[in-house]
Structure formats: C-alpha cells, structure tokens
Design a protein around this nucleic acid. Structure first.
Lengths: 212, 212
DNA sequence: CTATTTAATTCAAGCGCTTGCTTGAATTAA
DNA sequence: TTAATTCAAGCAAGCGCTTGAATTAAATAG
C-alpha cells in the first residue's frame, strides 16, 4: 500500500492508484494485480467495486472534464491575436509539462489521444478536438473568415503540433537539448518564442489568403 | 499463412509478417503466436531462426537505415530557405502518409519514437534526432548562426512538430476535417501551406534575434 | 542410381508464468 | 442477525519459450 492518506475507503484508493498505473503504463500494459497491490486491496476489489478492468478505466474518465477544458480567454472577443496565442501556449505547455509531475489525469488524456485504448466514447476522447475547435474559432475571428476551410484547419493543427511535439518527444528533447525544458524560466522563454513563431505562421496565412 | 509469394523461406516469411504485426500492434502487444500463424510457421520457428522475440524485433531494425535518412537537399549549400523547407515537408509528409498504406518499416520507426520498446540502441532509434539535427544545420546556415542555442533548437522542434501532428493525430484529423489528407492533391496543398507557415516562423525567429 | 548416413528444418505438446476474473468462505460493520 | 466488505485460492486463457521426436533435405557411400 502506498497511498499514505489513511481513512480513504478502498474504492477511491483503487481509483487513485489505477490512475497512476494507467497513466504510466497505458491501459493494456497495466495489470489489475499491480493496481490492487499498490492500493492495498485484494485483487477481487476491482471486480467488487467496478466490475472489471475496462469499467474501472472508464470510471476514471467520468470525473474531470473541466480539467481538460481549453482556456476561455481565447473565446473572449477582445483578446488580441498576440495575447491569445501567448495565453494558449502558456496554458497548453503547463498542461504538457504536468504530464511528468503531478497531473496523472492529464497524462492519461494525452496517452489516450496518442494511443487509444478503444474503450472510450469517441466524443469524450478528443482533447485535441476541443483545442483544435477553439483555435479554429479564434483564428476565424482574427482572420475574418466566415467558413473554416482546409487551410484554416491545417493552420490550427499546425499550431497544436508546435506544442504537441514537446509532449510526444519530451524525452528526446531533454536529451538532445538540455536547458530547454528544465527550469521554470526555460519554460517561460519557450512559451514566448512559441507564441512568436505561431503568430508569424498566422500572419503568413493571412497574407497567403489575401494574395489568392 | 497470408504471404502469397511462395518459394520464400520460413525465415524471411517470419520477418515480413513480424514487421506487419509489430507495426500495427507495437512490440509488447504483438504475440509471437500470431506472427508465426500468419507466417505459416510453427511457433518454434522464431526461436529456431532468431532466438527470441526481442532478437526478432531487433533484427527488423538492422535492415533499413537509408529508408529513414533525411533528405540530402537540405545539406547542400545552395538550397534556399524556401526550397529547403518545401522539400523537407514534402519528404516528411510522404513519410508520414506512408504509415497507413505501405511502408510498415516507417510506421515501426515512428511507433518506436512515440512509444519505445526499450530494446533498441538509443543511437539507432532517433529518427526525430536525425531530422532535428539536419534542420538545425540547415537553420544555422540560413540564419547565419555559429553556435546553436536553445531558441534555434526549439525552432527546429517546432518545425518537426508541425509535421508530426499529422502522423500522431492523423485519425483525429481525418475525422475532424475531411478533405485535408485524402487525395494526392490534398497532400500537395498541405505541404505547400506547411512550408509557407514554417518559412514565416523561421523569418520571425530571424527578426526576433536581430531585435535582441 | 540407389542406399545410407548426416544435417537442417518442422512439428505437436507442454512448461512456467502472467493475465483478468471468479468463488465461497472469513471478517467486519450495521 | 443481517448486510457489506475482504480475503486466499484458483480457473481458464494467453504469453514467451523449450523440447524431443518426426520430417525433410543434403551429403556420402556402395
């Protein structure tokens, strides 16, 4: 048993431990025995409280929702392009960085996005969908576009990708370029530059559209 | 047995099938029994020819090397920034698109990048490392930078990320925005815009550096 | 060319282990 | 007494891997 907080009933102890194990190993590679052992619960506990492994996993995705909501600032009408992009990357990068230390739930969501278990409703999964959709709205407003087209969607995905690579490849990035993601100041600088590059891409798209 | 080409010895039949199965399920989730069954070979075949599952997996990574080499054009001195970025994204996007139909080897490499098996030499793994390093060289030349710093490395990762999101999220992208990655013309347009956005980001970085 | 020996290959069976899950009894709380 | 919870034990299935025999191919001898 590793959950130091006593006086927590077995059910939530299972939930908390399952969250960690699923987040670190993924659904398929996580074993119910390990979850129960680390939670200090008999193996039958999962069946007793949740039915089976899949239901336990799905239960984890019932709770949060607000945890993964994209930042509201982008939807406010008076947010400038610069400020919006800056806020968005600051938000999404803390989100990404959380993955290593702290928020297992976010790691779980990201993992589900990259390597789906196949157990969740398609609607519930898409954080990328949520963030993409918000970006599209934001870009439509600032580029004064009525109907979103392929190019706009692509641009939004591109802006997502600029941040996503820092999650998917964070191990490689740390190894290849130390001093890029270590301290809090590093992250601050990264966000600032990222917003700058993103802004340039958006402006390029604006220019591209007028010249057509 | 699904390998229609007859007169292929058991060893290569195992190799070919293993490639498909590993590529579609990943190392841990792929079972030796399935590989052997689909290859039309007894389960002992893997042990007989390769020793064990891990060695078979590693054997797959002995062959290619040149398959994953980044495009040489970028290292030629007379390649312009525009032309280089365009060529680079054209190359990497066919690479990414291959993943679904055809080159299982590339899918295997990408999978190993995103979800490492832990069985490969670190040196052999890093396609992202290769591509990133080439981009850094390319950018150093065009931005006239002597020593690469955090900002330059970040920019290179950003350029990688712009393409990578189309691999990692290709399922979501296809669902969210049909008509972005279907036909050959779609891809052509995507590459063109991608290069345009990337160019803007690079120029933004150039400007950012002079204004410091 | 045939017969015999030798080596290479294929095979079914199964071992030990881990997986998710079940069960009926023991324990605790109401 | 009754209900809720915990438990050890174990089942069936899948896993990677092993084994010794059966089969086939290759090499050698008559």
């Amino acid at each position: 048993m590793e959950d130091s907080t006593e006086a927590v009933d077995a059910r939530t102890r299972i939930l908390r431990t399952a969250l960690k194990v699923f987040a670190s190993k993924g659904y398929a590679q996580a074993s119910t025995r390990e979850i129960c052992q680390r939670a200090g619960v008999n193996v039958a506990g999962i069946h007793y409280y949740f039915g089976d492994k899949a239901s336990l996993y799905q239960e984890l995705f019932q709770i949060p929702e607000r945890m993964i909501r994209p930042p509201i600032i982008l939807d406010e009408a008076d947010t400038s392009l610069e400020a919006g992009l800056d806020a968005w990357y600051r938000h999404i990068m803390t989100f990404v960085l959380d993955a290593d230390s702290g928020s297992h739930m976010r790691l779980l969501f990201l993992r589900e996005q990259v390597d789906p278990s196949g157990l969740l409703d398609v609607d519930r999964v898409g954080i990328i969908g949520l963030y993409h959709a918000q970006l599209v709205r934001f870009l439509k407003r600032h580029l004064r576009i009525e109907e979103s087209d392929s190019a706009l969607n692509q641009l939004a995905f591109t802006l997502v990708g600029m941040a996503m690579v820092f999650y998917v490849e964070r191990a490689a990035i740390r190894q290849l370029t130390p001093g890029l993601m270590e301290s809090e100041e590093d992250l601050e600088a990264v966000v600032e530059r990222m917003a700058c590059h993103a802004l340039a891409a958006v402006e390029a798209e604006r220019l591209r559209r007028t010249s057509l």
